[in-house]
């Protein structure tokens, strides 16, 4: 009798895990790639799969493995979101030059170039007229070439000689 109850609980764990995994798979396949910040949505969805897999491991009798992965899964999700935030966030895709700009998630980033909101304005720079203008403070920073540096050094030496 006890064996039957244990087997029933194991089966319930496995079936619940299978249902959650199937729902997530359908969600991933149906999710629109053109959404803003879609990667965070995917990380959130895959967190559900992590829990379902932990449940499946418990159902299969691998308790230690389930415990280890339950502890490690949040670290993985946080590492991926952190890496995306600091490396591939769309505030860095400001240039329309295909050689300079990295490949982005969707065409959203191309649209983001012209979409300056009050929040984004602090992060966005204008690359017009060979000047980089900080939109926040209105400070104009000119592009400096090596010739300019050499001329500047020559002028300094001339002033020192005088």
């Amino acid at each position: 009798m006890i064996n039957f109850i244990v087997e029933f609980i194991q089966s319930a764990c496995l079936i619940i895990a299978a249902i959650v995994i199937l729902i997530t798979a359908i969600g991933i396949l149906r999710l629109n790639d053109d959404m803003d910040k879609v990667i965070y949505v995917r990380i959130h969805m895959l967190g559900m799969v992590d829990v379902a897999c932990v449940l499946a491991m418990i159902g299969l009798g691998q308790f230690l493995l389930a415990g280890i992965y339950l502890v490690l899964a949040p670290f993985v999700a946080h590492a991926m979101a952190n890496a995306y935030y600091y490396s591939e966030d769309d505030c860095k895709y400001e240039t329309t030059d295909k050689l300079m700009s990295r490949i982005d998630d969707t065409t959203h980033n191309k649209l983001a170039i012209n979409k300056i909101t009050t929040i984004d304005v602090e992060f966005k720079y204008n690359f017009k007229n060979d000047e980089i203008e900080s939109s926040k403070n209105g400070v104009v920073i000119k592009e400096v070439s090596t010739d300019d540096i050499e001329n500047s050094n020559l002028n300094k030496r001339g002033e020192e000689d005088d």
Binding site: Q10, A18, A56, E88
Partner: peptide, 26 residues
């Protein structure tokens, strides 16, 4: 139930391949 889980995992692996073949590194 183990067979059901295997089928669900195989379907999920196709979805994972779809994410994997996306052009972004993350």
């Amino acid at each position: 139930s183990e067979y059901i889980l295997i089928v669900a995992l195989v379907i999920f692996m196709f979805a994972a391949v779809r994410i994997l073949t996306h052009k972004t590194i993350a």
